[in-house]
Amino acid sequence: MILLDNISFSYGENNIFKDFSLEIKKGEKICFFGESGCGKTTLLRILLGLEKVDNGKITYNGNLKPSAVFQENRLLPFKTILENITVLGADTQKAIQNLNALGLGEYINSKPNTLSGGQLRRVAIARALSVDFDYLILDEAFTGLDDENIKTSINLISQVAKDKTIIIVTHSLKEAKLFNAKIINL
């Protein structure tokens, strides 16, 4: 369980949240919805420990391990696709299995600059699923993917992270519905 208790966050003078509270239960699927600039990504960054709140408290039930698909792919250009996943501590077999499931099996030894935008996005998804995690953050994870690949990716995520907490930011209500996620308007 993750508990956000009256958190406030601002960028300089710009208040992003004020006294925001939320309880995220283990295994829950949550989707943050809202206009651009309302703080969806900031909230995810707070949950990943990349931003510190000005006020309030965040409580994690135990030593929870996060995993994330960021808005950008964040793949290391000098490593192969497989190395990009294993460097984060993922099991090699698990990584290969996930890459195969997303149709990327033949690219495991390729460098990121040889793959298309959609393929790189799927690598980022495979990477997030291959590490050991307790909660998964998906920040516009399916941008640039066609319907078929979105469906395949969501199926894999639902299967791998079946009992795990998933926190999603998306502009597509359709994607949120495919996850059966609880929608929270920001």
Binding site: L50, E72, R74
Partner: peptide, 11 residues
């Protein structure tokens, strides 16, 4: 962004 990746996965 790459450093953040290392932070998130506690490298």
């Amino acid at each position: 962004k790459y450093i953040e990746l290392a932070q998130v996965y506690k490298l």
